[in-house]
């Protein structure tokens, strides 16, 4: 069974197409990144899956249940962190976690572990939320979404407002959940974070799906930039598979390498190289390229 399946999921607000015929499948036990800039349709998708919005057409299924008819049953099995989470300012962090835990109807078995990892001390939890910084609110948001051990966590921009140390702590939490076989649907526009934590990624643009790829496969297809300084005759790279845009000038060779890098390495093994730089492929480049392609 898939954790999430959408089939032609569409949401229009009058003439505005917030989401257009989205088809994605999230497998059980994976961390699935949902990537796109603001306004691409990420939050609309999540709200459709949670039953906050009714689809114009198509359907969404979460844990095998229909997102419209079985919305309450779905929400009994998931944890949700909204983007820019809002909390009750007049309550303490502890009171909010207690209240939302009670509403979930499941014991908050994971709360202590999560609070420890995110450095939410008991005295901090006893303070009113109105005195919290943005990062502390986000931590409470993460704890409320995961404290009851949901089968599926839907997290909308989860690391927003967290400092780098806490981001790392949060990624560690995701690693633990993944090792336990839990599914995480992760919306973000931070490419480095998606690259760091996700198994697969769907990229959306203006409400339409641009691509769904394994992160590793996406990176493997990306261009690496190569810059080498030479002390003699440059190697012949014209016929090497995957090598493009070769430029030689003043004892310096630059090119781009796409896909498998081994043929390139074999071709330069006897070259008189003084210095060599190979820039790693980043998801950002892949993302921008896919976006350019989709925009054409």
């Amino acid at each position: 069974m898939h954790a999430i399946t959408t089939t032609g999921l569409t949401k229009h607000y009058g003439p505005i197409r917030a989401l257009d015929a989205l088809d994605i499948t999230v497998r059980e036990g994976e961390i699935f990144g949902f990537l796109g800039p603001n306004g691409a349709g990420k939050s609309t998708t999540i709200r459709l899956l949670l039953g906050f919005l009714r689809p114009t057409s198509g359907e969404g299924r979460v844990l095998g249940l229909d997102s419209v008819r079985d919305s309450v049953a779905i929400r009994a099995r998931i944890g949700y962190l909204p983007g820019g989470v809002a909390l009750y300012d007049s309550l303490t962090g502890e009171e909010i976690l207690d209240y939302l835990g009670e509403l979930s109807g499941r014991p908050p078995v994971r709360r202590k572990e999560l609070c420890d990892r995110l450095e939410l001390l008991p005295q901090t939890l006893r303070r009113l939320v109105r005195d919290y910084s943005r990062g502390m609110r986000q931590k409470i948001g993460i704890v409320q979404a995961l404290q009851h051990e949901p089968e599926l966590a839907i997290l909308d921009e989860p690391s927003e407002g967290l400092d780098p140390l806490m981001q790392r702590a949060f990624y560690d939490i995701l690693d633990v959940l993944k090792n336990e076989g839990r599914t995480i649907f992760f919306s973000s526009h931070v490419l480095s974070e998606v690259e760091r934590v996700c198994d697969r990624v769907a990229i959306v643009r203006r409400g339409r799906l641009v691509a769904v790829e394994e992160i590793a496969a996406l990176l493997a297809r990306r261009m690496r930039k190569v810059d080498m300084r030479l002390a003699g005759t440059p190697p012949r790279l014209e016929d090497v598979p995957g090598v493009l845009n070769i430029m030689i000038a003043d004892g310096r060779l630059t090119c781009q390498v796409e896909g498998d890098i081994r043929p390139f390495l074999a071709a330069i093994v006897d070259a008189p190289i003084v210095d060599l730089t190979i820039e790693p492929a980043h998801l950002e480049d892949a993302f921008l390229e896919l976006y350019k392609e989709a925009g054409r």
């Binding site: 906050f52 919305s71 309450v72 009994a76 820019g84 809002a86 909390l87 939302l100 509403l103 409320q144």
Partner: peptide, 14 residues
């Protein structure tokens, strides 16, 4: 308006 409704309604409450 405050945004707290969606946190509450993401629980199993119709």
């Amino acid at each position: 308006q405050r945004g707290t409704l969606e946190v509450a309604l993401s629980r199993p409450v119709s």
